[in-house]
Simulated scan of single mutants.
Amino acid sequence: MPATSKAQQKAAGAALSAKRGDTKKSDLKGASRSMEESMSEKELKEMAATERKGKPEHKSG
């Protein structure tokens, strides 16, 4: 599932880093914390790898 905004893509990258053990889970906040808990590493990798070009900074609505 691709990210729908740059913010979502960044949160997925942070969650993926924590899931892999590169950063502390306690450093996660907001969406990245819930993503780390609820999504698999594969799902996070797909979302974090989404092309940023043409994406809004934040999803509207």
Rank of each mutant, 00 (worst) to 15 (best):
A14T: 11
S26Q: 11
A7I: 10
G61Q: 05
S60G: 10
S17F: 07
K29L: 15
R33A: 15
G30A: 07
K10T: 11
K6G: 09
A48H: 03
A48K: 07
S17M: 14
D22H: 10
L16H: 05
K59D: 04
K10W: 08
A18I: 00
S60I: 02
K42L: 05
E41K: 08
G54N: 01
E46F: 03
L44A: 11
T4N: 11
E36N: 13
G30P: 00
S17T: 04
A49S: 02
Q9R: 13
A15M: 10
L16G: 01
E37D: 12
G61A: 13
E43N: 13
K42A: 07
K6E: 06
A48D: 02
L28Q: 07
S34N: 13
A7F: 14
M1V: 01
K10E: 12
T4V: 08
S40T: 10
M1E: 00
R33K: 15
E51I: 02
E57G: 07
E37H: 12
K29R: 15
K25M: 07
A7R: 15
A7S: 14
E46S: 03
E46R: 05
G54R: 04
M35L: 15
E41W: 05
K59M: 08
K59I: 05
P56T: 02
K42P: 02
L28G: 06
K24F: 08
L28C: 13
G21F: 10
S32C: 14
K53H: 02
A14R: 15
E37L: 05
A3K: 06
G21R: 12
S5N: 05
H58F: 15
A31F: 12
K24Q: 10
K19M: 15
Q8M: 12
G30W: 03
A48L: 07
L28H: 08
E57V: 10
E46I: 04
K6P: 03
A12I: 11
G54L: 00
G30L: 12
A12S: 13
A15V: 00
M1T: 00
G54S: 03
E46D: 05
A11M: 00
K19S: 09
K42W: 04
K25N: 01
P56W: 03
K55V: 11
A31L: 14
A15D: 04
M39E: 09
P2S: 02
M1P: 00
K45Q: 14
D22L: 11
E36W: 10
P2Y: 06
A11R: 07
D22Y: 06
A48E: 01
S40H: 06
G54Q: 00
G61Y: 07
G21Y: 12
M47F: 09
M1D: 01
M47T: 08
K55S: 06
T4G: 08
